[in-house]
């Protein structure tokens, strides 16, 4: 990694450098909620001033740019008894995602493991991942963040450039990709001094201090195994609406369903992938109607097993990055820290 420092005004210059010829995406304030708190969303932006780089978090993650909720995997042209299959990966130009937090970049790195690993990598995802230039920014923690417990409060790869405001009107650039280096050359930057390094450390320490919610992940895979029959799952299942909003908001949930449809003219068929949620009633239903997880409690439990046990077994790290979105969006107020605490022996609330 190469490091550079620059004046704060260079952030706007960076945006404008890229915005003229590339699609720009970033956090935008879209509304105030009832309590007067701003609600943010990742949107396409044309003007630097529209970006809210001091955002806490967005309601939904940036996943939709990489893994759209609905995507046609193939289109079939039909001719008699025959057909031909056409595929499109739905990415035809580069884009810039300006202002992604460390947890969200870590989330993409985890998706990469499944969707761009050695076993049947997914070209639909890869096309987007390889063509979205990522500029990370330091975050503003909120009460529901527990990224420190998941080890995702800092990120070492999976982005092009990471920008941290180190105070005193100065920015600290971490340059990961050669393409980012190429872009940075057109900005006024300098070599960081030892004082810049110290300022960076101070900012990070202060940020970490604000991340107060914790999840105890010690021996969690084993505890989950042992507590497979625990009554807490039913308690949470009774609260769960089974609506799938947690998975929709989650930056790492990638489960999906495939459906095929035919246009009413019988000329063309489509195979469509739709992101699904394991909390939804028919997630584990098979042809003929048998449902392997008919109760909400077993479905909710499965979600935790996949994220905190199965993924750990396969990739040595959890599929949860501690962004807290699932708990924020859940109308029933089900949060990861509380569920895991209850499984570990606390009382479910």
């Amino acid at each position: 990694m190469l490091f550079r420092v620059a004046e704060a005004s260079q952030l706007k210059a960076l945006f404008e450098l890229l915005a003229q010829t590339n699609t720009m995406l970033g956090p935008v304030k879209v509304a105030d909620d009832l309590g007067g708190n701003p609600v943010y969303s990742f949107e396409e932006v044309a003007e630097f001033s529209r970006l809210s780089l001091d955002y806490t978090t967005t309601r939904l993650s940036a996943k939709r740019f990489f893994l759209p909720f609905r995507e046609d995997l193939a289109v079939f042209a039909l001719q008699g008894k025959d057909w031909s299959k056409q595929m499109d990966y739905h990415m035809d130009r580069p884009a810039v995602l300006f202002g992604l937090h460390a947890c969200d970049i870590n989330a993409l790195n985890r998706l990469d493991k499944v969707l761009m690993g050695s076993d049947h990598p997914v070209p639909y995802y890869a096309a987007k991942r390889k063509n979205i230039f990522i500029i990370g920014t330091g975050c503003t923690p909120r009460p529901s963040c527990f990224c420190r417990s998941m080890g995702t409060n800092t990120v070492t790869h999976g982005f092009d450039l990471f920008v941290t405001d180190i105070g005193g009107g100065r920015l600290f650039f971490e340059i990961f990709s050669s393409e980012a280096y190429h872009v940075i050359r057109d900005l006024a930057t300098g070599e960081p001094t030892p004082e810049d390094h110290n300022a960076y450390m101070r900012v990070e320490t202060e940020r970490n201090r604000k991340i107060t919610t914790t999840v105890d992940t010690t021996d969690l895979t084993k505890i989950l195994d042992m507590e497979f029959q625990s009554p807490v799952w039913k308690t949470w299942g009774d609260k769960c609406l089974g609506c799938g909003s947690c998975a929709s908001a989650c930056p790492t949930c990638y489960c999906y369903g495939v459906e095929e449809t035919v246009d009413p003219g019988l000329r063309e068929a489509k195979k469509t992938r739709t992101l699904y949620s394991c909390n939804i009633v028919d997630f584990a239903e098979v042809a003929g109607g048998h449902n392997f997880r008919p109760e909400r409690g077993t479905r909710l439990k499965y979600r935790y097993y996949h994220k905190h046990r199965g993924f750990v077994e396969a990739y040595e790290e959890s599929l949860c990055v501690g962004c807290g979105r699932c708990g924020d969006i859940c109308l029933a107020g089900i949060t990861v820290p509380e569920v895991i605490a209850s499984v570990r022996g606390g009382d479910p609330t």
């Binding site: 879209v30 909620d33 009832l34 939904l60 609905r70 799938g244 929709s248 992101l275 009633v281």
Partner: peptide
């Protein structure tokens, strides 16, 4: 079999409860 919420989130809507 899923509720409206799933498609609502897919459309990047604000939650009306908010």
């Amino acid at each position: 079999k899923y509720p409206v919420c799933l498609e609502c989130k897919a459309n990047n809507n604000l939650c009306l409860f908010d």
